[in-house]
Amino acid sequence: MTLAAKSLLLIAVLGLAACNNPDRYGAGAGGAGGAGGAGGIDTTGLGDPSNPTSIAYFNQTVGDRVLFAVDQATISPEGRAVLAGQAQWLMTNTGYAAIIEGHADEQGTREYNLNLGAKRAAAVQNFLISQGVPAGRLRTISYGKERPLEVCSEEACYAKNRRAVTVLSAGAGV
């Protein structure tokens, strides 16, 4: 990817941050990520997915998320493989910190799902730490059922919403 293309991608990210999704890019996220710029907007270049040290590569090739069974926070064998890759990547690319976002599907009460999301995020955090990632580079947050990825009310969507997503940001620690 050319520098111009990279810039475009960065602009696209900034544009997204500016127009909506305040919770992901809002005032708080800047403070929490430790890399907040003016106005608390956390800006991180995604980089080129063909570059193995880029966030785009982490998200797409390593895999930024693991999925869970109903009501469970146990990491599946497939999930463990993804997280082993994440741990490897994080130990190689030490300039990044991560916030692990735990989510639940909409089946369940609000408070319970907030906790379930926290359990899922903590399970991922614990696994990454067990693989050697320094705890100081990892934080967790739960969104409960507040931020579904898929919006249908069927298992096909629920399965994708029961997730923990490792969100990288530039900065060695949080």
Partner: peptide
């Protein structure tokens, strides 16, 4: 109430 204003609940 519960707020995500600080970035975390």
């Amino acid at each position: 109430y519960t707020s995500f204003e600080t970035g975390f609940p």
